[in-house]
Measured scan of single mutants.
Amino acid sequence: MLDDRARMEAAKKEKVEQILAEFQLQEEDLKKVMRRMQKEMDRGLRLETHEEASVKMLPTYVRSTPEGSEVGDFLSLDLGGTNFRVMLVKVGEGEEGQWSVKTKHQMYSIPEDAMTGTAEMLFDYISECISDFLDKHQMKHKKLPLGFTFSFPVRHEDIDKGILLNWTKGFKASGAEGNNVVGLLRDAIKRRGDFEMDVVAMVNDTVATMISCYYEDHQCEVGMIVGTGCNACYMEEMQNVELVEGDEGRMCVNTEWGAFGDSGELDEFLLEYDRLVDESSANPGQQLYEKLIGGKYMGELVRLVLLRLVDENLLFHGEASEQLRTRGAFETRFVSQVESDTGDRKQIYNILSTLGLRPSTTDCDIVRRACESVSTRAAHMCSAGLAGVINRMRESRSEDVMRITVGVDGSVYKLHPSFKERFHASVRRLTPSCEITFIESEEGSGRGAALVSAVACKKACMLGQ
């Protein structure tokens, strides 16, 4: 009897593995994704193909990295998701002549009506938060230079001027797309009239992360975010950046690689679950690469896999709870928690219980395998993109072996128990001629924006502006 049951459990697990095998990517698959990513990057950089390229390769006008001589107080704003952060950054000489960066910050959550109302409502709310922060720190009387981390696709015309191309991540505030974001912020500050600010720089969160990590390690020339969304930036040779005049030196390019796949480059790798996630998203047909990796989508992918296993009578005796059938019910943090389970399955059992399920031991094991399959594919897909960037940098610099540091931020990278190990191992397999160091950014977005502002202020002083 026991043997029969054991055989049935083994057969069930084997069927589960057959279904989950769809998520496995072979090294040849990853090399294919990497080569296609490089081709799209090239198209994004070139003037004649930029418009139709899915990977936009947006110039950021960040050319210099901090040298350690900029000092002063800077205000930093960070808008990239449902939370908005205001930070005071003091850049100065530390002990023994070292450079020191001290920060104080406060988080504000953005109400739904500000995210989806008008641009005026959104930026009025942001300036209200700045006003509140300055009151708390008794700094209303000071006109501070301000660095703005704005983590949406922007076409820069200068370091302090950028046109919002399109909202992502659930934002829909009308009247912002096609307009200068810094102008919208300046107008809102003017409307309030109770404080003055000098907006000197606007950067993407990947750029802010790279600059913040450069402060720790001067070989950091790539910034990457794996959180709600997924994106990367890197220092490109100016001669390859056709959208900006000049051939000397390097400029940081914001790849906006989340949109890779929007022209069909990933079609052969998309599964039924991916198509369902895409169809029910706020932007169907867009940001397809990001939807395979980002935390906004990972939990939902797992939920759809679990429903398939229920329908195949391989999980929960073929019956799903009402909660499990509800879109968004299986949160991405559950994926991390399930994979963090120590082996007694308590954590998995508790999560499934909150979803109205009474799982068996085998159910718990199957749910864990589903989570591992989805998150491992995410790590491997992400590795193909980064390997594409790094191999490109090595080739354009004609280096036999390139040493490089990548600064990384984002909740999936930082909080998932195995993502970074799987990701690092896969990147290294795909970049055999590179020695890569990964560092995690601390308060990256805010500190990085302030350091970019410090560079901009120093330049302005040198130019006598």
Rank of each mutant, 00 (worst) to 15 (best):
K13I: 14
L463Q: 14
N231K: 06
T376K: 13
N180H: 08
M381I: 09
M210F: 07
S280C: 11
A425L: 01
V101D: 10
E256A: 07
D205H: 11
A378V: 06
L288R: 15
S109I: 05
H218M: 06
L430Y: 02
L144W: 14
M121C: 14
L184H: 15
F150C: 14
L292K: 06
S398E: 14
L88S: 12
R308C: 10
N180E: 14
S441G: 05
R428H: 09
H141P: 11
T228F: 09
D363W: 01
D198C: 03
G97S: 15
E237C: 10
G328K: 04
R325A: 14
V244Y: 07
V305C: 07
M402W: 14
Y413N: 03
V244L: 08
T228R: 13
E268T: 14
V277K: 00
T255W: 04
V277E: 03
E14G: 14
E319Y: 15
I225H: 10
F133V: 02
L185N: 04
M238V: 05
W167N: 12
E67A: 07
A387V: 03
H50R: 15
R250P: 12
L314T: 10
M87R: 04
E120H: 05
L185D: 01
R46M: 15
N231C: 06
A329E: 10
S433I: 05
I404A: 08
E28N: 03
M41E: 01
G446W: 13
S360T: 08
G446V: 14
G94F: 12
C382Q: 02
A329I: 14
S411M: 15
A119Q: 14
S411A: 10
G356D: 14
L386C: 10
K15M: 13
A329V: 12
E443S: 01
G261V: 01
S54A: 12
D311V: 08
C371S: 07
R333I: 04
G175N: 07
F260P: 00
T60L: 04
L243Y: 08
K12E: 15
E28R: 05
D132I: 13
E17A: 07
L20F: 07
R422K: 13
M8V: 14
M107L: 10
D400G: 07
G444V: 10
R186I: 04
D365A: 12
R85S: 14
V91A: 11
D73S: 03
K420A: 14
E279N: 08
L292T: 08
P145E: 06
V222K: 01
D3V: 03
E96D: 13
T60V: 06
E177G: 07
P59L: 06
I225C: 06
K104S: 05
S411T: 15
G227S: 08
E395I: 10
Q337W: 06
M115K: 06
F195I: 05
R7Y: 14
L79I: 15
R192T: 05
R358P: 02
V310P: 02
R36G: 05
R191Y: 02
D73L: 06
S321L: 14
Q24H: 15
H424G: 09
V101S: 03
A454W: 06
A384M: 04
K291V: 01
D274Q: 00
S281I: 00
E128Q: 11
D73M: 02
S336T: 15
E93A: 08
V199D: 13
C382P: 00
M462N: 13
V101H: 10
V199K: 07
V181E: 06
N179L: 14
L88P: 03
S127F: 07
H218E: 12
R345T: 14
M197Y: 11
V244C: 05
C129G: 08
A176F: 06
H156K: 10
G246L: 08
I404Y: 04
I436K: 02
C252D: 05
K172S: 14
K15L: 13
E17N: 10
G410R: 01
A259G: 12
L79A: 08
Q106F: 09
V408Y: 02
L292D: 00
R250T: 06
Y297F: 12
Q287S: 11
C213Q: 00
Y413D: 01
V199C: 14
F152V: 14
F123C: 15
C220A: 15
V401F: 10
V389E: 00
L355D: 00
L146Y: 08
T431H: 02
M139Q: 07
N391E: 09
R36K: 07
I189R: 03
E9K: 15
V182N: 03
T326G: 14
D194R: 02
D78K: 15
E17S: 14
L25P: 05
V406D: 01
P284L: 05
A329T: 15
T206Q: 07
D409T: 13
L45H: 02
M34D: 03
T60P: 03
L122T: 03
Y61L: 11
W167K: 14
L75W: 03
D274P: 02
G178W: 06
T228E: 11
E290C: 08
A188W: 03
E242I: 03
S396L: 11
G170H: 15
H424F: 13
H317D: 15
S453W: 10
E312W: 07
T332E: 10
S453R: 15
T209Y: 03
Y125H: 08
K143W: 07
G407C: 11
R275A: 12
C129R: 03
F316Y: 02
T209N: 05
H50G: 03
A21D: 15
S69E: 03
Q18C: 15
L2Q: 08
C252R: 00
R275H: 09
V200A: 08
A21W: 15
S100M: 11
A384V: 12
L301G: 01
V455D: 05
E128L: 08
R368G: 08
L276P: 00
E216R: 02
E399Y: 13
G343H: 10
K90A: 09
Y215T: 06
L20G: 00
G410Y: 05
L276A: 04
Q337N: 07
M121E: 10
V401M: 13
T206F: 02
M462W: 08
M41I: 04
V367I: 05
V71I: 07
R392H: 13
R345S: 10
E9Q: 06
G343D: 05
R308N: 04
M34H: 03
A425T: 08
S109E: 15
A188I: 07
M121H: 04
P417H: 15
S396Y: 04
T118W: 05
P153F: 12
R250W: 04
E319M: 09
V91Q: 07
A232H: 00
M393S: 02
L266G: 00
V199Q: 15
K169E: 11
G295R: 08
K414T: 11
